[in-house]
Write a protein that binds this DNA or RNA. Structure first.
Lengths: 107, 107
DNA sequence: TTCATATGTAATAATTATATTACACATGAA
DNA sequence: TTCATGTGTAATATAATTATTACATATGAA
């Protein structure tokens, strides 16, 4: 629903999307929510690794998670896909990246 | 000018765009070509590092380089920006990433 | 109680990505 | 010849990302 995007936000989104597992996660979550353990099984990866990927996607605002209580009373963490739309073309990137501050990697 | 894009190509483009210097390069090359040494000066980075970034952009098809002879007869390598347009939204990524093969990192 | 399932994280290892330094070689101009 | 400029890469160091292992804790069902 946001209309504007800063250069930093653009970079964060692009970094979040630059991994095959994270693209797969988006494909799986498209249209239906899923909980973490089942998602890990569908991807064939461990839960700690999945958490790392989900954090990057959530940090970029592309997905979001919430706890739900199952019928049997167990806590389940479900993730769902947020809708987003960024025009990835040369002009848009050029205009957005003008204000990009490049920070040092480390302290 | 391409109308279709495979999941592998999408990932390659997203990886190419997931770095601040490479976004900056696109901003600089937008509308005007530039040669490598001058580009390195504008970015404030070394030529070897710039070559590395340019190779990723060129590998994704976002820029292309060619040699030119300057008036004085020196070989200059110019890079220019290709036009491209990818609809970066949840539905497009989900549909494209379905056919994504995740390869092992190593042999 | 024991088993199968779930969430959540800390510590560490393995692999890539990023960045620097030091070269070689070529041209034109002073 | 020497200096300033250009292209191009090999070797290496540094930092970030990705991935694994090992935990702790909780619930429901058999």
């Amino acid at each position: 629903m946001k209309e504007t995007i800063t250069s930093d936000e653009l970079l964060t989104v692009l970094e979040a999307l630059s991994n095959p597992y994270r693209l797969k996660i988006i494909a799986i979550l498209y249209g239906k929510k899923q909980y973490v353990s089942e998602l890990a099984r569908e991807l064939g990866i461990s839960r700690p690794l999945l958490y790392m990927h989900l954090r990057k996607l959530e940090g970029a605002g592309l997905v979001q998670g919430h706890l739900e209580l199952s019928e049997s009373g167990k806590a389940m963490k479900y993730y769902e896909l947020n809708s987003f739309s960024i025009p990835l073309n040369d002009q848009f990137i050029a205009q957005t990246a003008i204000n990009l501050m490049i920070k040092r990697r480390k302290e």
